[in-house]
């Protein structure tokens, strides 16, 4: 067994609202700790080099690439993953609109997009299309062409503002 797995690091932090303790090899990234030591596999990896945004999670409300953060750096922080977005009351509006509009095709990049979008909506309840593009520009999606993702974010923002909103007919059926 290689040397660096022998002495585990130990941290306590808040994970999806719950106080959490975990021990892990100290060189592990937050991504690896979440997936391998806490079995929260909802956080995905696309490159493990900080290039694709797939592994984004929220740390103290800010989106970070969990592949570039050491697990040790989560000590005392508030970490939120896709698993923490839904609760017993139901899905987060973003999860609902992503699911219902087809913004998740293969679904692999979806958790990262959801969390970055959540951060955006926490600061900006009425983002323009350009602001959404800007906020999501660090996340790659190879399936959707991003359009259904923009629409899902806009729809969730409207619903979170208390508006009754649905997708424009053109987005569902094309131009008629």
């Amino acid at each position: 067994m290689s040397q660096n797995t022998k002495h585990k690091a130990h941290i306590t932090f808040t994970l999806n609202g719950e106080p959490t303790e975990v021990a892990f090899a100290p060189h592990k990234t937050l991504l690896e700790v979440l997936r391998e030591d806490l079995s929260l596999t909802g956080t995905k990896h696309g490159c493990e080099l900080g290039e694709c945004g797939t592994c984004a999670v929220l740390v103290d409300g800010r989106s970070v690439l969990s592949c570039l953060v050491l697990g040790l750096d989560a000590e005392g922080r508030r970490v939120e993953t896709v698993e923490g977005m839904a609760d017993a009351a139901g899905l987060h509006p973003l999860q609902e609109t992503f699911a219902d509009t087809g913004a998740a095709q293969c679904g692999y990049c979806t958790p990262g997009f959801l969390l970055v979008a959540k951060e955006l909506l926490a600061h900006n309840a009425t983002p323009s299309r350009e602001e959404i593009k800007e906020a999501l520009s660090g996340n790659l999606c190879r399936c959707t062409g991003y359009i259904k993702i923009y629409e899902a974010v806009e729809l969730a923002a409207a619903r979170m503002r208390g508006e009754e909103a649905g997708l424009p007919r053109e987005s569902v059926y094309g131009i008629e």
């Binding site: 596999t41 909802g42 699911a99 219902d100 998740a104 979806t110 059926y173």
Partner: peptide, 23 residues
């Protein structure tokens, strides 16, 4: 009709298990 996909909610909650999620 524009139904959501049967697996859409699993994919939006991190419940879908991809190959590397299997342990």
């Amino acid at each position: 009709k524009p139904f959501r996909k049967v697996d859409a909610r699993a994919k939006c909650t991190g419940q879908t298990l991809f190959a590397d999620d299997i342990a």
